[in-house]
Design a protein around this nucleic acid. Structure first.
Lengths: 249, 249
DNA sequence: GCTTGCTAAAATGTCAGACATTTAATAGGC
DNA sequence: GCCTATTAAATGTCTGACATTTTAGCAAGC
């Protein structure tokens, strides 16, 4: 794959890293394939070798590419990508059409993890945590219309992130970054009718209530119900389906 | 905090990043404090500015420090550290005496997450996955003596990592990196008597059996039992205690 | 006295060019 | 045919100069 179709860019090495990172996430290069050489990138984007090297260093840090002196740069296997790196989440969230396989994998993770997080939050949340969740929930309610989908999604994001934070665990908190790509993908599949939005709101409300009441098991169940709704909205499972996304043998 | 007590080093920028990263993880600088300037680091370690900048770039990528032109370099809050970055795990695992708070946080995460992972593995594992878990388990059995603690811990690590891989989820798999610092800490608290080692082995065996049998709920329970044993061995809870480490309000 | 604005210093960021090192391919000798 | 030396090509490193950003200090003006 050549880089002819990539647009010129403006901004520093970060912008270049983002551009290349997103191209890799979008599948412009296959794993194992050789990546363009530094000097070619310099020429194509009309930037200094320094900027290219800085950008490539970011890509290396996220496990997208692997570089060896004399050999060149190759694209890593998907299983080696650092999906939990905040940079990666940001790039993924900014993609127009993220790889459905990736979205599905991330959602499958959320489906198994988030009930546990909600349960932890119900045990550990203090007043400030509950206030944060509540505020996000209020925002979701106010923006529950098709016209304000973008703002609604932001509040949705804040809601779930607040729950991760409320778990009061450093590791789970870091994982909140993963929410952005998963939730931003909702905008693409914007089959947000009034009915589904209302249903989604009710389910979110039950999670909030359970956490506020300090009921871990109820929070766990409620979180799972929220994710079932999200799975439908993401187009991962069909509307009527009662089955859940799970990893088959 | 000055860097007078840091040893000279040998190796490239990676080694320097490791040295500085481990010093940060060990708490040599407080969050918010200013970090030494590039030129001071050059002088102290007798390396080029290039190497220093590369090392500092790694530290920036892991969220340990934050750099601003003209302002300088400051140490980030612990909550901003990218604990899920593989580099971070490696540094943390290599520490002689990692911060007990961090070890506890990571273990608390494992305690809530690993039962879920085991359950997923019981659903998703194929023959190769089970073989990998089995092989690690055999290794643990063979090295179950105080003399071979180091090798035993490696097999222990392989056992848990194989379960993460068996979940067949890209995100959970990435999280396997976290195991190393958590399990390596076991070497420090090496109160491995024959009895505890035997008990630990039995519990690990039950996880393997449940996954092989494809029984998610049994796997979940068994994984929790393994972690209760580990919590004792890590000195997180007392021997007789039946209570579990959890995040209090 | 307080604010405003200019100036200088100090830190990180960037550039350009030469050189070092590693890897792989290639040609040559036996 | 195999082994070795050479060459080419890629990434890695060093150096010095310069750019940019931020902060602090100082001075002028209201």
């Amino acid at each position: 794959m050549s880089l002819d179709h990539l647009p010129r860019h403006q901004g520093g090495a970060d912008a270049l890293a983002r551009l290349l990172g997103q191209a890799l996430l979008a599948g412009s290069w296959q794993p194992g394939e050789v990546f363009p050489r530094e000097l070619d990138l310099c020429k194509h984007f009309e930037v200094s070798r320094n900027q290219v090297r800085n950008a490539l260093a970011s890509l290396t840090a996220t496990g997208l590419i692997e570089r060896t002196a004399g050999r060149g740069t190759r694209v890593c296997q998907i299983s080696d990508w650092h999906l939990l790196d905040p940079l990666m989440s940001e790039w993924l969230a900014g993609l127009e059409a993220p790889d459905p396989k990736l979205v599905r994998e991330i959602f499958a993770f959320r489906y198994s993890a988030e009930p546990v997080v909600a349960s932890l939050a119900a045990n550990a949340a203090v007043a400030a945590d509950i206030a944060a969740i509540e505020q996000a929930f209020d925002g979701m309610r106010i923006t529950a219309s098709a016209q304000q989908a973008a703002r609604h999604v932001e509040y949705d994001l804040a809601f779930h992130e607040a729950i991760y934070r409320a778990s009061h665990n450093l590791v789970w908190r870091q994982m909140g970054h993963l929410l952005r790509p998963s939730i931003m993908a909702l905008i693409q599949h914007s089959q947000h009718s009034v009915a589904t939005l209302d249903d989604s709101l009710v389910r979110h409300g039950r999670v909030l209530a359970a956490i506020r009441a300090g009921q871990p098991q109820a929070a766990e169940r409620a979180a799972r119900e929220v994710l079932k709704r999200t799975a439908i909205d993401l187009g991962i499972v069909a509307e009527a389906a009662d089955t859940l996304p799970s990893n088959e043998r």
